[in-house]
Nucleic acid binder design. Structure first.
Lengths: 125, 125
DNA sequence: GGTCGCCAGTAGTAAATAGTTACCTTCCCG
DNA sequence: CGGGAAGGTAACTATTTACTACTGGCGACC
């Protein structure tokens, strides 16, 4: 199962049903997936990571979901998967340019979260 | 079923499992729901809307999903549901201050989408 | 040369989310 | 009175996402 990169070097084709193209809907279909933003965030912060290192970094995700998510993100040209060594089989996940440009989105999310959400155990209610 | 507003006037309590609080994960759990960003976008753009007007604006969503989404967003203090008139029963959905502050996130999403995604029918492949 | 643990995942299944179709109630208009 | 708009709900199906386990290669230790 060699994940084909296909159109990873051009804009991803997504059609937003309805009268006109909707960038918000399209973007939501990419990062509106619970774990995708965190994965991208960790890759932005901690640079290229191996599978298990990324799993640790994301903290709470399962192997399967991470695997599926990475496959999805790779297909969409956001994440790169590089085989570093064959014999002691090692891979590294990183971001494409397109992925790195998601930084403002992730950052806006973090800012909003910091301002409007609180950890449950710190609450005074 | 009077949707209780509860903690709509304070930060929502969400705990990000693991060693430290993660604002990105928490925010993703709120807006990482396919339609939530678009709903917020439309409310930001077109101001307060009635149920069916919002359904038209979002273009593609079903009554059920819109209903569920609005309930969810209301519980989290992002959307307000105001009964405008009782006898010819009319409601209006709008954004709270917290909801309005999602604007930068939505905007970043729209910008990214415009730069990196294209409508399917415009593609040359 | 066995077995411990690290690395990179799969398999199978459960739970959540989204979508479909149908239907309900109250008004207002003609 | 009949039909349409507003604002949904109910029941069911389909799809997606998530979780618990487990596999299998390789290297290091003993």
């Amino acid at each position: 199962m060699s994940r084909e990169d296909g159109d990873a070097d051009g804009p991803v084709e997504i059609w937003c049903a309805g009268e006109d193209w909707c960038a918000v809907t399209a973007t939501a279909s990419l990062i509106g997936k619970k774990w995708h933003p965190v994965i991208v965030d960790r890759l932005l912060t901690d640079g290229p990571l191996g599978f298990n290192a990324l799993k640790e970094a994301v903290d709470g995700i399962s192997s399967k979901v991470l695997s599926d998510s990475l496959e999805d993100l790779e297909e969409r040209g956001i994440v790169t998967r590089t085989v570093i060594s064959e014999k002691p089989f090692r891979v590294e996940y990183g971001l494409t340019e397109r992925g790195r440009e998601l930084a403002p989105v992730i950052d806006a999310m973090r800012t909003w979260g910091r301002d409007h959400l609180v950890p449950a155990d710190e609450s005074d209610r």
